[in-house]
Structures are given as structure tokens and as C-alpha cells.
Simulated scan of single mutants.
Amino acid sequence: MRTTRQDLLAEEVPLAIHANGEPLAVMMVSPCDLEDFACGFALTELGIARHDLLSVDVQSLLEGIRLDLATRHPLPRHALDPQRWLPGRSGCGICGHRHLEEVVRRPESVGQGPAIASSALEVALAALGKQQPVNAFTGALHAAAWARPDGTLVLVREDVGRHNALDKLIGAMLLGGIDAASGFALVTSRASYEMVAKAATAGMPLLAAISAPTALAVDLAQGCGLTLVGFLRRDRHVVYSHAGRLTAD
């Protein structure tokens, strides 16, 4: 039997990022929590710390959204290379890079961070679904969450792009003064190289993903001291690097 019902769809809009008046990138995003995204993107993609980001201006235009960043210091020369930044898809982080050394970034080692019980991962996962309001209606968004060592969720951000969701989470933590070394992150996606790079750049000691990691992601996590967890389920998970940070229940 055929029925007709109204459906709710997730928004996906083009976002143009400018810094000090210079165009940097265009990507597809969910149009929410954009100040958080700006702070996170500035750190993880441009290397701009929170105290060096003077202002964020968000403008809604006919064609999409423009995000203007004002920084305390000039951007690095490579960031302003007009041939580097190309229009990107949802959270496409390496679009526009022309050289291998620009793509494979090696963040500094993360701190020790707290000991985290394995059960805390499952506690965070069980709570996450209830804190994804847009995805609950549309089924189309990724989420990135920050949890205390006991698994209590503190922040959750959603976006059509998994990289964007993590940047939004990192930005919200920066704006909220949350120490990235005080808990762990959980993402509803695979753990790609860039997700690990962003988490490590922010200083997160542990990243848990509900899907698989890539080989390069595991290599990067091993090298920078980050605990990488994949295939997170309510009754099991796989630890790919630095398992010593997780404790038995």
C-alpha cells in the first residue's frame, strides 16, 4: 500500500570562508553552530589558536553563507596560496592541497590525559542518540561529542560532514574553555586520518568512532600518543593504539 507523508530533510548549504579579507575555502555545511565551526576550523586547518582569532562574522547571502575571520597575525603564506583552496564537499579537508607534505600533517604528541574506563565509552555512546536532535528527524547528520572520563556527555555538535562536526565540537570547547585533555571525543563516523589529526591538534587524548579507522589514522594515532578506538558498540569495541589509557571496569 502506498502512503504519502511529509518528510524532514537536513539542510546543506555552501559556506565561503575568508580570513582577513582573503578567500580561503568553500565547503558544504549544516548552517548551525557556525561560530563554533570557525574556531575549530581555524585551529585544525589554519593553526590559529583561540587567542589569535579576533572576531568571527557570519553573513547570510543569497548564494549561501560567508564566514569572515579576523586574526591577530597574518596567515601563513601557504594558507593564502590561491591554488591551494578549491571548492570542497561536505567537510572535505584536503581539497586543494597540491603537495604530499601539505596533506599528511603530523600533530604534536597529546598529553597523558585521565584514565578512562572501558565502560565509559559505552555510557557515552548510549547517551549520544538522544542528543542528536536534527539527526533524529532527518537521519542525515554526523555527530561529534565530548565526554568526561566517566562517559557523561558535555557537548554534542552535528553536521552533514564528519570533519565539520568535529571542528564544531573543537570550536565549542575552545569557546567554552574546556580542557581537551580532560576527557575523550566520540564521533559517529569512521576514524579517517584527518579526524585523528584534528583530534590530536586539539589535544584530545582519546578518539572513539563507531566505524572503522584507516591504516594511516592508526599510524598517526600511534605516533602522536592518541588512543584510537573503532567499532564502538554498547557491548564491545576495538582499541588500535595506546590501549594503556583505557582501564578495566
Rank of each mutant, 00 (worst) to 15 (best):
M1A: 15
M1W: 12
R2D: 15
L8D: 14
L9R: 15
E11A: 14
E12Y: 06
I17F: 02
I17S: 00
A19K: 00
N20F: 11
G21S: 08
M27T: 13
C32T: 11
E35K: 09
G40F: 00
L43Q: 04
L43Y: 02
E45T: 10
A49H: 06
D52S: 08
S55Q: 14
V58R: 08
Q59E: 13
S60E: 13
A79W: 08
L80T: 12
D81K: 02
Q83T: 06
P87N: 10
S90I: 07
G91K: 03
G91R: 00
C92G: 14
G96M: 10
G96L: 11
R98L: 14
H99A: 14
H99N: 13
H99P: 09
E101W: 10
E108M: 11
G111Q: 11
G113S: 12
P114Y: 09
A124S: 14
L125G: 01
A126F: 04
Q131H: 10
Q132Y: 02
P133I: 04
G139N: 05
A147N: 07
P149A: 08
G151P: 09
T152M: 10
L155F: 04
E158A: 12
E158W: 04
V160F: 04
H163S: 11
H163C: 12
N164G: 14
N164F: 04
A165C: 09
D167W: 04
L174D: 05
L174T: 00
L175I: 05
L175C: 11
G177S: 11
S182Y: 04
S182Q: 09
A185T: 03
A191S: 14
A191P: 11
A197K: 00
T201M: 15
L206N: 01
D219V: 00
D219T: 09
F231S: 06
R234E: 05
R236N: 11
H237D: 02
V239R: 01
V239H: 04
S241R: 03
G244K: 07
R245F: 03
T247W: 06
